[in-house]
Nucleic acid binder design. Structure first.
Lengths: 259, 259
DNA sequence: CGCCCTGTTGAATCTGGTCAAACTAAGTGG
DNA sequence: CCACTTAGTTTGACCAGATTCAACAGGGCG
């Protein structure tokens, strides 16, 4: 995410590790044969320009997408056309998995900026899961993680006021950047105020106003899409979330190997 | 859900089919040996009374719960104590699966009424998945379904006004009852106005007021927790959802068998 | 029978939405 | 290179829907 040259080039440099499938298999301790197998399936690379759609609601579930660089938003809609953005996705994340049940995508995905992805056919993916059974398990973990994330968003949408929402949002971005070794206090947004407001369930004018207020209070500095978080602690207090200076290191859970 | 004698007895009568694991395995065409295997793991039955907690946030992930009769709410909280109910669960549903990633429950589950469950140890469940590989696949499908459901709730929380929320909610209940061959137009709620409001992100007074309004307009009739939907079509219009008289029959997707 | 919980209703208040307008940055094409 | 367009952002004024506070009604249960 972001357009700084340093981040872009960084993305490319670690694109292999960042490619989602790597993340899928990393915790499994795959041997090199497995990794080679994995590589076979990560062939098709595609670029999407800002505003281009990766997949639409109802389309047959044919590909899973691993983001290599750039960023993507996913959203659903009421039948009278109101959209709800359900997630912003950054390099290393896998898109489309939740279409498994109905075999059709149940949300739409659009590139927020020029975005490079690995397009993995579902058939290949299933073949992969057959040959490396613990891939199934990793998929479960990833979906479990997504459910947890969505639950937190529900809490935000259902119970938090506008200030808390925006503070929560900035902190969540900060943590995600920290995880990927980007600066947790200084970054560029790839999404517009309108997108942020939509995601958080508030009007874009409200987003603007609160950015201004945070800036007046010295909690952040923002110039258009460039954001500096000056006071993570105060931001955490506003968001009503426990403050953690650095990303918490959670010991990897024991992973049963079903092979 | 509901306290009508007819529904209760019905639940008991079809408890086997309603037990969640059955649902998990039903679409897989298990042979009788598999079914026997399945039965081995569904031993422990437990009862929870209204208000009793099945599991708490952060507790080690040791059991998966299949609801046999009754109903359960799940919820998460901000650290200053505000709760957000994330789901109401009825017979046939499986609870706890989304703890897979962190090996700890990430929400709390509480019985809304006297509730009977099958308690399945996670170890047994994993053993089961090892012996019947397509169980993995069914788990993926169930989690995929949950993600879709949560996305729809986000749309509701983020974009719909109070009337639309309540109408959407009533319709969603109606559909779930229809799926289980209960009346889609007449049922008892097991949750309070407060719970409904919490779930939908509105105050309980607002829930009450809108129930009254719907009743004045003749769309529904309600007496405390007993609800009659008089005009599903108008309700759909209010909810801004496509009207479907009966539950749509979706052809079962082709299920690859990884054995 | 009386208490308590749940639900209903009214009135005052306020957060955040809507509408409108000005402004900026970044293209776009002549 | 400049005029013009377009998309995105910010700000102000006003207003509506929903919350909050408060009082009260009714059912169910001990």
């Amino acid at each position: 995410m972001g357009r700084q040259a340093v981040q872009e080039s960084n993305c490319v440099a670690i694109s292999c590790q960042n490619c989602g499938l790597y993340q899928l298999c990393l915790p499994m301790g795959l041997d090199s044969a497995d990794t080679a197998l994995l590589d076979r399936y990560v062939k098709r690379r595609r670029m999407f320009k800002r505003g281009e759609v990766l997949y639409r609601i109802g389309e047959a579930f044919t590909y899973v997408y691993a983001i290599r660089s750039g960023s993507v938003k996913t959203y659903i809609s009421t039948d009278d056309g109101r959209l709800q953005i359900t997630g912003f996705h950054v390099p290393g994340e896998l898109l489309g998995l939740n279409a498994i049940d109905e075999k059709r995508y149940n949300c739409e995905a659009m590139a927020l900026e020029t975005t490079s992805v690995c397009e993995i056919s579902v058939e290949c993916f299933e073949e992969l899961a057959r040959q490396i059974p613990s891939v199934h398990y990793q998929m479960l973990r990833m979906m479990s993680k997504e459910i947890k994330h969505n639950q937190e968003l529900m809490l935000l949408l259902g119970k938090k006021n506008a200030e808390e929402r925006l503070a929560t949002y900035l902190l969540s971005l900060s943590r995600r950047f920290a995880l990927r070794n980007y600066s947790p206090t200084q970054f560029n947004l790839s999404m517009s105020r309108g997108d942020i407001g939509n995601y958080l369930g508030i009007a874009e004018e409200t987003v603007s106003r609160i950015f201004t207020r945070f800036q007046e209070e010295g909690v952040i500095a923002s110039e258009r899409r460039h954001i500096i978080l000056n006071d993570l602690e105060r931001l955490s207090a506003i968001a009503r979330e426990p403050y953690s200076a650095t990303a918490q290191v959670i010991p990897l859970p024991r992973i049963p190997n079903p092979r």
